[in-house]
């Protein structure tokens, strides 16, 4: 339970960091070449395993925000033998305080989607009880 609370706290801390940093000027950091192809409206992410598109107007977050989030996730996920191998953070064109985050995590032992849902259920329940989470608006599995 403690590890799961740590992970939830990491997310909450990230949100707080964003609160502090989002007013700072955004500067692009070096692009992770070759994985994105630009057209006029969409960026295409392709890592040989998955493909998805995201709005071309979303810009990469500042290196400060990126590195702080990476450190938080590395620190907390390592406690449960999970490791970040990909992290992308983009800022919204509508509101620099809003972020799109994509991450790819390596797990040591294979897990099922049912296990992941059960894990989130427990984590959210513990976080609600601890007061870090105020409301679960939705938690569901969709096939």
């Amino acid at each position: 339970m403690r590890n799961k609370i740590f992970i939830f706290l990491a997310v909450s801390m990230f949100c707080l960091i964003l609160t502090v940093l989002h007013a700072q000027p955004i500067k692009d950091f070096e692009d992770s070449v070759a994985k994105t192809v630009t057209n006029n409206k969409q960026e295409i992410y392709n890592d040989q395993t998955v493909i998805f598109t995201y709005p071309a107007k979303w810009k990469k977050a500042s290196s400060d925000i990126y590195s702080q989030m990476h450190q938080l996730l590395d620190h907390d996920l390592s406690k449960i033998n999970r490791f970040i191998i990909e992290l992308e953070v983009y800022t919204s064109p509508n509101n620099e305080g809003n972020y799109l985050v994509f991450d790819k995590t390596q797990v040591q032992d294979s897990i099922s989607i049912e296990f992941l849902l059960s894990e989130r259920n427990k984590t959210d329940y513990d976080a609600l009880a601890s007061g870090y989470l105020t409301k679960i608006n939705l938690l569901m599995e969709f096939p």
Partner: peptide, 20 residues
């Protein structure tokens, strides 16, 4: 979130307030 093999893929939108 979704699990593919030994990887968890996760996409999130963080909003600093409900309207945003």
């Amino acid at each position: 979130k979704t699990v593919i093999g030994s990887h968890i893929y996760e996409f999130s939108i963080y909003g600093l307030d409900n309207a945003g």
